[in-house]
Amino acid sequence: MEFLKGDERLDYLLAENLRIIQSPSVFSFSLDAVLLARFVHVPIQKGSLIDLCSGNGVIPLFLSLRTKGSIIGVEIQERLYDMAKRSIEYNQLENRIQMIHGDIKEIPKELGFGKFDVVTCNPPYFTTPTSEEINENEHLAIARHEILCTLEDAIKASSQLAKQGGKVAFVHRPGRFLDIMTLMRKYKLEPKKIQFVYPKQGKEANTLLIEAIKNGNPDLKILPPLIVYQDNNEYTSEIKEILYGK
């Protein structure tokens, strides 16, 4: 198929009538991206949305099912940007989703400050490793580690892009919770709702979902915990509904 290159494959986007290009050696989306796309509050009929650190475009594709607004995805890795662009073309969503190959630190200057109703970001989770620890696969190393952008870079850019009262939502690791809260307030993003995700009942949380409002008033809501797996290693009913619908 002309849409695919190398070891790429064309996967179904879970229960949705969409397909996405993935590659085991370059990038495949995780549950984190799905959870963020479902967690964030989006305007249904119109609005401007932007997703930073888009990878292969999974969050913009998911968001296109929840809103009729315009969506931009930003990805710094050319190979991943190309995969996302081809997925958008395959699904005939070019009139709804635009991909930009660029550095999120420069995007506010390029697109303009305070232009977006919603900003989402699934940034690299881990601080820059030593040369001995870094993944030999450059694509995976950049996606997972703060090599080309830090958490502060991502939060600062998100704040610059968001309108007054606009929503900014991140998915990250609970270990960075205080860093996220501190940086969000530094850049005038007031955390409004948080949800912790647990692999199983009785285990420690391994994922954090957080949504803030640009220059919002303090009023933080902690949502009920989200459990991914039952004891028999099957998805819980909540996760099944998120992944596959009712």
Score class of each variant (00 low, 15 high):
60 P>W: 05
60 P>I: 05
60 P>K: 00
61 L>F: 07
61 L>G: 02
61 L>S: 00
61 L>M: 01
62 F>P: 05
62 F>N: 06
64 S>H: 02
64 S>L: 00
65 L>F: 01
65 L>I: 04
65 L>H: 04
66 R>T: 02
66 R>L: 05
67 T>F: 07
67 T>D: 02
67 T>M: 08
67 T>I: 10
68 K>G: 11
70 S>P: 09
71 I>C: 03
71 I>T: 06
72 I>Y: 11
72 I>Q: 11
73 G>K: 00
74 V>E: 02
75 E>Y: 03
77 Q>G: 09
77 Q>L: 11
79 R>P: 10
79 R>W: 05
80 L>I: 14
80 L>E: 15
80 L>Q: 15
81 Y>N: 08
82 D>A: 14
83 M>N: 08
83 M>R: 03
84 A>Y: 12
84 A>H: 09
85 K>N: 15
85 K>G: 13
86 R>V: 03
86 R>K: 05
86 R>W: 08
86 R>D: 09
87 S>V: 09
87 S>C: 11
87 S>P: 11
88 I>P: 10
90 Y>N: 01
90 Y>V: 12
90 Y>L: 12
91 N>M: 08
92 Q>V: 10
92 Q>E: 14
93 L>A: 01
93 L>Y: 00
94 E>M: 13
94 E>R: 12
96 R>N: 13
96 R>A: 15
96 R>F: 09
97 I>A: 08
97 I>W: 08
98 Q>E: 15
98 Q>Y: 11
98 Q>V: 15
99 M>Y: 01
100 I>T: 04
100 I>W: 08
101 H>E: 11
101 H>L: 12
101 H>M: 08
101 H>A: 07
102 G>H: 06
103 D>M: 04
103 D>Q: 02
103 D>R: 03
103 D>Y: 01
104 I>Y: 08
104 I>F: 02
104 I>P: 04
104 I>R: 04
104 I>G: 07
105 K>I: 09
105 K>Q: 09
106 E>G: 13
106 E>F: 09
106 E>D: 14
107 I>T: 04
108 P>V: 12
108 P>N: 11
108 P>A: 11
109 K>F: 14
110 E>V: 13
110 E>M: 14
111 L>T: 08
112 G>L: 05
114 G>M: 07
114 G>W: 11
116 F>T: 09
116 F>I: 08
116 F>K: 07
117 D>S: 12
118 V>C: 01
118 V>T: 03
119 V>C: 05
119 V>K: 00
122 N>C: 08
122 N>Q: 04
122 N>F: 06
122 N>W: 04
123 P>F: 01
123 P>R: 00
123 P>M: 02
123 P>A: 03
124 P>Y: 04
124 P>Q: 05
125 Y>N: 08
126 F>M: 14
126 F>P: 04
127 T>N: 14
129 P>F: 01
130 T>M: 07
130 T>D: 13
132 E>F: 08
132 E>V: 05
132 E>R: 07
132 E>T: 09
132 E>S: 11
133 E>F: 00
133 E>A: 03
134 I>V: 13
134 I>T: 10
134 I>N: 05
134 I>F: 06
134 I>Y: 08
135 N>E: 15
135 N>F: 14
136 E>W: 14
136 E>Q: 14
136 E>S: 14
137 N>S: 14
137 N>D: 15
137 N>P: 10
137 N>F: 12
137 N>Q: 12
138 E>M: 13
140 L>N: 12
140 L>H: 12
